[in-house]
Nucleic acid binder design. Sequence first.
DNA 1: GTAAGTGCAAATGTTTTGCCAGGTC
DNA 2: GACCTGGCAAAACATTTGCACTTAC
Lengths: 137, 137
Amino acid sequence: MRNTQQRRAILQQLRQTKSHPTAHELYELVRRQIPNISLGTVYRNLQRLATIGEIRVLRSGGQTRFDGETVPHDHVRCVRCGRVADAPAPQPSLTAPAEEHVEGFKIVGYRLEWLGICPTCAAQDRAATPTEELSPA
Amino acid sequence: MRNTQQRRAILQQLRQTKSHPTAHELYELVRRQIPNISLGTVYRNLQRLATIGEIRVLRSGGQTRFDGETVPHDHVRCVRCGRVADAPAPQPSLTAPAEEHVEGFKIVGYRLEWLGICPTCAAQDRAATPTEELSPA
DNA sequence: GTAAGTGCAAATGTTTTGCCAGGTC
DNA sequence: GACCTGGCAAAACATTTGCACTTAC
């Protein structure tokens, strides 16, 4: 695999952000360094980097996000805005269900995603719901 | 919300299949009962049924699948073919990480997906070369 | 030099939406 | 009859791909 400036920039941006960006967000970031990079190139490289295990793909909540951190860990997703943060892996690690309980599937791993409300959305909730609207008598 | 024959058929089909179909698969199933139902209607109703909690939406592996079973349980996904089966919920249930470990998110739940190889794909593996898939946890 | 990689644009696949007719209450 | 809903088709997105040109090695 060639070491192109595009791939280097993509990986570098992904590694130095903790925001788990979408492909398009990453595209915007990399575009500051390489203004004429194309979105297709970003997608192509993300796919390759994922295949060789350099990055991780997070699909959930209808969005695809990318994570430059390959050390095992889980994630929390805000159910309001879709923002994703890291979460520590559970202690002790999970025990896989026996094959006879999962239609004979051989378990090779798992993905655990916590669901939550991020601080920003929690603040908005407090501002939006405090008073019920009273019906005019 | 009105009780239309379309919505009844969609929910009924989803409830009586254990295959966690995609929207299009469900569309094909329902079409046997209501030949001129439209894909848009299937999507609209799945969305509504999910909103009121009658069904569950599973997004992973780049596919969106639907589950008519609302009793809490987890899933196993075949990393080769994307097929999804049910898995029992872990015992004891997971303990949420403390807020300070997840950037202040308030945890409201989790989604656990086991990754595995289904019996069909395992059989094919024995005859062909293994493939790759994205990292587990 | 040459094959992998890029930019661009068109194609693909999935999900959503606007509009009006038709069914439901 | 009022108003949800559905059918249909177009639109909106996200992602992939074909092709000719570049570039890393």
